[in-house]
Design a protein around this nucleic acid. Structure first.
Lengths: 135, 135
DNA sequence: GTTCTAATTGAAAAAATTCGCAATAGCGAA
DNA sequence: TTCGCTATTGCGAATTTTTTCAATTAGAAC
């Protein structure tokens, strides 16, 4: 069976994700660690973020501008991303819980602790409506 | 006001997405169109898929192996992706509807017509349980 | 502590994706 | 139809991400 080794690089990368609040990109992590680990290569960062995600230690999300990572263990939270203006609204876990609970009852254990739903916020819907009317 | 032009390339790319069942990658589209449009450049494919997604004509999903696109208009459907074995279960739209409706009531118009929830299927949960016990 | 082995690393090359810009071509207005 | 404006294209270059591979090293076994 394959054992997952906890190397210095991997530990540091995980610590960095955990140490920063909110979402971090692979690039951010690379640049933060490079000074203290000059040997560190980008591929190691990418590989480890993926490995840590598979491991379930960090969560991955695409927020429209590339991947962002986040430590698992914090309060689960979710986002409504507006495709019109890019605005990101928070969505509380309690709003999502009933839906997830239903999946659990069905036998599927949800690991996602950061859901992103894409759509249009109310002001962008109004704008769209105004455009329709103006034609 | 900016008008979205329906160019030959854009029309062909959309037609290709619509013509193929299930999910297609940017690369697949490029390779299918290249023979009949030798001028076509990869960047055009990428740009158009993004534009068509913004337009709401195609939906984008990350299924763990990069982006995949799909024509909008078919039955909305969703997936439960197992992080253990990679298995993908279907999730009917009716299972998701109540959750989405709640967001609509809140004023957010959901555009996602293909949700992916990550977690562990029942058999992978059992396996994990067995491993715990074996330690 | 020493040995063994497979997981992991760094560096470079490859592949995927995006960007910058001059040339082209939709589409609305005349 | 023709004209004019500007969104879009194709190309090459830049950027980002993945792969390859020989060298290294964590962690288990002794």
């Amino acid at each position: 069976m394959s054992t997952m080794r906890m190397t210095i690089q991997r530990r540091k990368i995980l610590a960095t994700v955990q140490g920063l609040p909110g979402h971090v990109s692979a690039e951010t992590i690379y640049h933060r660690l490079k000074p203290e680990m000059p040997e560190l290569s980008p591929s190691t960062v990418y590989r480890n973020l993926k490995a840590l995600a598979d491991m379930g230690r960090v969560s991955v999300t695409d927020m429209g501008q590339g991947w962002v990572f986040e430590a698992v263990g914090g309060t689960p939270h979710h986002h409504l991303v507006c495709l019109g203006c890019g605005e990101v609204e928070d969505l509380s876990d309690s709003a999502v819980r009933p839906f997830f609970d239903q999946l659990e009852r069905r036998g599927f254990h949800v690991a996602t602790n950061h859901l992103c739903i894409y759509g249009y916020c109310s002001s962008c819907q109004e704008k769209a409506g105004a455009q329709e009317a103006a034609r």
